[in-house]
Design a binder for these strands. Sequence first.
DNA 1: CCTATATGTTTACATTGTAAACATAGTGTA
DNA 2: TACACTATGTTTACAATGTAAACATATAGG
Lengths: 195, 195
Amino acid sequence: MPAQPYHHGDLKAQLIREGLKLLNAEGHQGFSLRKVAQACGVSQTAPYRHFKNKDDLIAAITQQALVAFRDQLAGAIQQHPGDPGAQLKAMGAAYVRFFAANPEYLRLLFLSDNTLNMQFINEEAKKQQVDNFQFLETVTTAYTNAHPESSLSQNELLIYSWGLVHGIATLIVTGEMPAGDDMMQTVDKILSLLF
Amino acid sequence: MPAQPYHHGDLKAQLIREGLKLLNAEGHQGFSLRKVAQACGVSQTAPYRHFKNKDDLIAAITQQALVAFRDQLAGAIQQHPGDPGAQLKAMGAAYVRFFAANPEYLRLLFLSDNTLNMQFINEEAKKQQVDNFQFLETVTTAYTNAHPESSLSQNELLIYSWGLVHGIATLIVTGEMPAGDDMMQTVDKILSLLF
DNA sequence: CCTATATGTTTACATTGTAAACATAGTGTA
DNA sequence: TACACTATGTTTACAATGTAAACATATAGG
């Protein structure tokens, strides 16, 4: 089972790369299978040998985003073993920074008509999504156990912390909030006060 | 200048109504000018007498959403004159409830490729957007003045409160968080603890 | 009444998604 | 080695869509 197939060499991977490029360049509006194919130098229907349809290609790009995002969150958690407060803060900071640096990833993971694309997401990608959610569940549970005096339950804390960083990230990506260093420091400060 | 023009009677308004219906029914994917025209019982190109193009129609629908949203926020503020803490809380609750009840409105205002559609948004709609932001600025400023002991500046409070409710609303609309009464009570509780 | 203009239709064409038929190049097997 | 199978890519075709252009018509206002 060779990784580099016959004719083109590595069309499947290149389709994903060029597809992400095109999404970043032109957004969902300007995205088309034919443009991606042309960017790869193949015929218009060549992508159908590797993906069922357009949404299937987008789902593959989405999976790349999921992997990168999960690694980012996992890295933040590992930096503060045994300290759920620091983990929550680091996760939140990583969350905002990751999507501020990769706006198209946030669109892919959360903002697109992804109920449609998600149908084509494969099992491995679904697992990564579950991973991401369980990171948050684990850390908020640990935090709640370590802070029995808190007025928020574990579930409330989860909604609170996720909502906060997700909202800021989304508002940055959609241009409602600025994205610079000042914003990142503000995020750090807010998270420091909370956890 | 009659409100009900010649042939059809009221095509422009009906296009907007049917357009919103179609967006709710099929999302951005399934939305097409021709379907909207058909739903109104007119020819495929009739919409071009009232809108420059597809994005222009979507912008008109977006404006409806902006008006409804602004009214919602204004209502929340008016219920608690002179009490910026209660105003912030009421605004936050209204924010989440409004978009939970009208998911397509959140997509229109914040999630779509709206950098494109916004180009067609008319001046009045832009003013409504500015209104919405100024509501938040005014209330957070009043709150900061009333609570000089707060560790957050006005700008930090704005980011904090907006981010929080926007994130929760977005996660509800995209299906990452449930939407029921329990969630609304959790939102109320979190906001009560904060302001 | 009559003409200008607002409104609607018909026709046409480019772009896109995608199915079907065809072509070809590696792979494994007799 | 020769041959057939299958993975990969191309050509062709068609339906849906956005939208421009030419045409038709109904209403308003002089």
